[in-house]
């Protein structure tokens, strides 16, 4: 693989790892390194199967062996770090000889789709239960069946609640993956990111006023992107991280500042999917670093229209 191909693969927002004919890793793109929290230095020479969690190793091992023996591409599903993937293992051939393998991991929504299907399947038995309970209610209309009627009414109320939750579940599942565009309070997003990071790291804090002008975009996506940025920076082990927000001209300036005791924190590269999420907000991203102070990543996000 030449430098040009590598640089192209670097920008793919899909985890990808390349191995040699012996089944050892040669190179992985940044998305793979981030998702699988790999140290790029120690990647080369590691058996491909060992890059994956226990449950997936055997399937990776078998697929790589089959492909290296000249077999066809192999496809199978695996789950890593809370994500579902369809793994495609293909051979790199020179002439008729297989000189290596590429493992491409396509994220799938299988898990969510299954949940959505279950949510839909639930409707039918719920309808049946409702018909039965309605019938029972009619038969318990008299005074003597008072206790039974109350129980049936309780059943109907419980059913109504199940329906409501099922609908909410459906809405949540259908909403997943799509990008919403709404006005939102950036301070609330920052607060959630800080709170969830503080569970594991007490040196993350927020520096923001009570309220700021609204931004326009998908708050969940921003939250996700900031969370990923924070995770990546926490891995570099800074002394303290401060999530800041303030008004800067007609923009809201969001910042992730890493304070160090000495020198600069380790190099960082936010993944393409994080960059995409920030691009959706029309955020201009800058990084400023100085060994005397630390490093700050700045997101200049335009305020929502009409403010």
């Amino acid at each position: 693989m030449d430098g040009f191909e590598r640089s192209l693969l670097t920008f793919i927002d899909t985890p990808l790892v390349v191995g040699d004919a012996g089944g050892d890793a040669v190179w992985a793109n940044p998305t793979f390194e981030t998702r699988f929290t790999l140290d790029p230095e120690s990647l080369a020479g590691t058996p491909l199967a060992e890059l994956f969690a226990g449950g997936s190793r055997e399937r990776v091992l078998n697929a790589v062996a089959l492909v290296c023996e000249g077999g066809e591409s192999q496809r199978f599903r695996l789950r890593e770090g809370g994500h579902d993937y369809e793994a495609v293992v293909s051979g790199i051939e020179v002439g008729a000889e297989c000189v290596g393998v590429v493992i491409l991991l396509k994220e799938t929504m299988e898990h969510l789709e299954r949940l959505l299907a279950l949510q839909r399947q639930l409707q039918e038995p719920l309808d049946e239960v409702e018909v039965v309970l309605d019938g029972l209610l009619e038969q318990t209309g008299g005074q003597r069946a008072d206790r039974h009627r109350k129980e049936v009414e309780d059943g109907l109320r419980a059913l109504a609640r199940i329906r409501k939750w099922s609908q909410e579940l459906g809405t949540l599942l259908c909403g997943d993956g799509s990008t919403s565009r709404e006005r939102f309070d950036p301070v609330a997003v920052l607060r959630r990111v800080t709170e969830s990071a503080s569970d594991s790291a007490s040196f993350v804090e927020m520096l923001a006023p009570a309220s700021l002008p609204a931004l326009e975009g998908d708050p969940m996506r921003l939250e996700w992107a900031l969370g990923r940025m924070l995770d990546a920076r926490l891995a570099a082990d800074p002394a303290r991280i401060v999530l800041g927000a303030r008004v800067l001209g007609d923009h809201v300036l969001l910042s992730v500042s890493e304070l160090v005791d000495e020198g600069l924190p380790g190099a960082i590269c936010d993944t393409p999917d994080v960059r995409d999420a920030l691009a959706e907000l029309r955020a201009e991203v800058e990084t400023v670093a100085d060994p005397r102070l630390g490093r700050s990543t700045l997101l200049r996000v335009p305020m929502a229209r009409g403010q």
């Binding site: 520096l207 800041g244 910042s255 304070l259 800058e286 400023v288 100085d290 102070l293």
Partner: peptide, 17 residues
């Protein structure tokens, strides 16, 4: 501008402590 804002952020975070 952007660079200055970055230093401002770092100084604010440092001074806060």
């Amino acid at each position: 501008g952007a660079q200055v804002a970055g230093y401002e952020e770092l100084l604010r975070a440092r001074l806060m402590e």
